[in-house]
Design a protein around this nucleic acid. Structure first.
Lengths: 223, 223
DNA sequence: CGCCCAATTGAACTGCATCAAGATTCGTGG
DNA sequence: CCACGAATCTTGATGCAGTTCAATTGGGCG
């Protein structure tokens, strides 16, 4: 099932869509692919054939262990590159979280060639790599030094910061479940719930439905 | 004290040293710097002026919180780039762990210019970034899904894999303390000790002195 | 409207942190 | 070369945060 899923996506003309921030040359080698909710973009242990960039929607990069535990290592939003590896096989799988998730795929050799000749494209990819490194390092801090409620608060601030490019009032609609949050933070879903409750009682957030959080200004600003 | 430390390093002619895997052009813009054990290469909140590459020795990248807790986000070995950021200020500090730690420093603008014109240099930096991403993602897995003894075992395998490029017998001399390991894994130093003891009793490792570990073949190979 | 999955809350258990006390190791100087 | 002192490392005892198992509620979608 997992292995066939990537065949189900529909190719779309690249002219239809804009890869966010993408240079014209990057766009010229992109294959646009669309995915449904929960659909596998590629799965772990699968052969790595190139890189991807999120055009729209949200994806999760994750690893499944034999014992069934899942670790989400990153969420990717429009403009993020993923599938970035120099190995032959993927260490992580990637799934679409939202319906109508669109990615641009760049065959590895084409992208390498392009970056060899086009410094602007190379610079952009490098920039995205650096951002990913900083995001992961920040996440290490969260994982290593925070209590469960602090982790959840940090996650909400992080996610809010990534999603809301526009100036806004602190409200946030989560495209992801408590289980996703739990597997990202390395805690149980029950503990995530309790943390939400605690943050609500403390006045850091208010909840209008489980997926609709409002960050209270002042209480939830600082890390 | 911290802020002055980087002034104490002695400049050395670049001709004296080889940056591992470095291209000639990369070397041409490098400033070589030497540090003592525990010396600060740069500290968190300090202005970011460029990138570094470890030439010899070992460094730790870490963050100190107000409450005194320390998170080590990565160790860097010869050939690794660090200080990689697009922000104006460092989020993490970096210290030499071993005496005679040598780094190559690349002023940000010089490096950007070089990468703009030299695709090979750009490719190498990109490659190093990808490796860092994969290392961090792997570490997320460790932090999120493992018990304390598993974390320590994973750390030893990881560190052994990074240090021992040559074929060897599983023995490993740790340049780092139990406290470093604890702050990397997000557990207490006492728990690290107990994990060492447990791994020794289980037969996964043998200890010839606290800093000299031998990985028992078969028992400690797989993640 | 009703079903089903997601979210929440409760209760008991457990792994790890914390505090405290020794034991080793290593560097330094006599 | 040995003795001393100061880290570093190790082990023990206790408490608590978070897991696990279980039950209930709630929201979203057919």
């Amino acid at each position: 099932m997992l292995l066939t899923s990537s065949l189900e996506c529909e190719p779309i003309s690249t002219a239809d869509l804009q890869v966010p921030d993408g240079t014209a040359l990057l766009r010229s080698i992109a294959q646009i692919r669309t995915y449904r909710r929960e659909q596998e973009i590629y799965c772990q242990e699968q052969k790595s054939e190139g890189w991807y960039c999120v055009v729209s929607g949200v994806v999760r990069k994750y690893h499944l262990k034999q014992d069934g535990r899942r670790q989400i290592v990153d969420f990717h939003l429009p403009g993020d590159f993923f599938g970035v590896t120099c190995r032959a096989y993927h260490q992580f799988g990637v799934q679409a979280i939202t319906d109508e998730t669109v990615t641009a795929f760049y065959a590895r050799q084409k992208l390498e060639n392009l970056m060899g000749s086009d410094a602007a494209a190379a610079r952009q990819v490098r920039q995205k790599c650096v951002e990913a490194i900083e995001r992961l390092e920040q996440q290490m801090l969260v994982m290593g030094t925070m209590s469960a409620p602090e982790k959840v608060r940090a996650f909400l601030i992080y996610f809010h910061g990534r999603v809301a490019k526009f100036g806004d009032d602190g409200s946030l609609t989560l495209p992801i479940s408590r289980y996703d949050i739990a597997d990202m933070l390395g805690i149980s879903a029950e503990t995530v719930c309790r943390a939400f409750t605690e943050l609500r009682i403390r006045g850091d957030i208010s909840l209008e439905g489980p997926r609709h959080v409002r960050m209270v200004r002042g209480a939830a600003e600082t890390y």
